[in-house]
């Protein structure tokens, strides 16, 4: 096969790409008559955000985290408990902020230990957060959970309807993804990548491993916190069982199946887990088995994730190599 031209990411193309992505995210609010599909679209945005956070931790900083569900829980409970007292617009960033701080704290052991130890610490953190949410009934509502979580309003704009709330979710998700994109393409992002590829070399080049790893962990956790904050008003209620360990495992699978360390990876992973089961309704009960099987096959044959398929699709349609979104 002859050599393929690589698509260059020029500012113009990037802007067009981002507008398209925004379109894809927002579109369901205008085009889908089915409330159920709209709900799935909202979930996809929220999952994308959480998975993108994990992608920072996993794909760019080379750490493992099994606590994304717990951070989502922290964000969700912050919004659920404070949006009536303060305001959604205060509670949402606050939830992200709390997740950020706790992410920093949880990130400290990650400087010292690797692999299974870090998996264990984050897993333990998830279980402990779950137990606290479950048992501190006076604050969190315990096993009953929190009900009637209102959707936000911004002056004359009301985000109560499913459609308008979906637009809000899509906007927030896109905004954060854009920030990430910008960050990853700055000097900073290159440092992240340096860590993953070769810790020793990165250190010798003067990258402070300690700070970058910590920041990756904290920012990734904050993403989950914000995603959780968006989830709470979407469901209208929350209880601790939502934020269980299995949910964290799902995000890990999502990122790996989608393609870790690639910017598009989490988005693809989230779509595979939420939308695909609806397309293949015939195999509905089998879906998770197929998904798990596919995950294993992808790990073995496509170590870079399902994003490889996207690259191939892009190349065969346009005749050019898919653009490299991050350096």
């Amino acid at each position: 096969m002859n050599t393929v031209k690589a698509s260059k990411v020029t500012p113009l193309r990037a802007s067009i790409g981002w507008l398209c992505l925004l379109g894809i995210f927002v579109l369901p609010a205008f085009s889908v008559s089915s409330q159920y599909i709209l709900y799935l679209a909202s979930l996809t945005c929220i999952y994308t955000l959480t998975a993108a956070g994990l992608n920072l931790i996993l794909g760019y900083a080379g750490q493992i985290s099994l606590a994304q569900a717990a951070f989502m829980g922290i964000g969700a409970y912050t919004v659920a408990l404070l949006s009536t007292k303060l305001s959604f617009w205060v509670a949402l960033p606050l939830g992200g902020g709390i997740a950020f701080v706790l992410g920093l704290v949880l990130g400290f052991p990650s400087l010292k230990v690797k692999h299974h130890y870090l998996a264990m610490i984050t897993l333990g953190f998830n279980i402990i957060v779950y137990l606290i949410l479950m048992n501190e009934q006076e604050i969190t509502g315990g096993s009953y959970g929190v009900f009637n979580i209102p959707r936000p309003k911004a002056g004359p704009i009301d985000f109560t309807s499913n459609e308008s709330y979906h637009i809000l979710i899509a906007l927030v998700t896109c905004f954060i993804m854009l920030l990430t994109y910008w960050t990853l393409n700055s000097q900073w992002g290159r440092a992240f990548k340096g860590i993953r590829e070769n810790e020793l070399r990165a250190e010798m080049l003067g990258v402070s491993l300690r700070n970058y790893k910590l920041l990756a962990f904290a920012i990734g956790s904050a993403f989950a916190g914000i995603a959780g904050g968006l989830l709470a008003p979407l469901l209208g209620y929350i209880d601790p069982t939502i934020f269980n360990l299995g949910f964290s495992f799902q995000f890990l699978l999502m990122v790996i199946v989608g393609g870790s360390g690639r910017f598009e990876g989490p988005f693809i992973g989230a779509i595979i887990i939420t939308i695909f089961p609806e397309i293949f309704r015939v195999a509905e009960r089998l879906y998770f088995v197929i998904f798990a099987l596919a995950a294993m096959l992808i790990l073995i044959f496509m170590p870079k994730g399902a994003v490889t398929l996207w690259d191939w699709l892009f190349q065969t349609i346009t005749g050019r190599e898919a653009p490299k979104l991050t350096k």
């Binding site: 089915s34 409330q35 159920y36 959970g145 209880d239 939502i242």
Partner: peptide, 15 residues
Amino acid sequence: SEAPVSVAAMKKGIE
């Protein structure tokens, strides 16, 4: 047996 899934199932069901 999970609450969020039951919400999705209801939304699906009423269609």
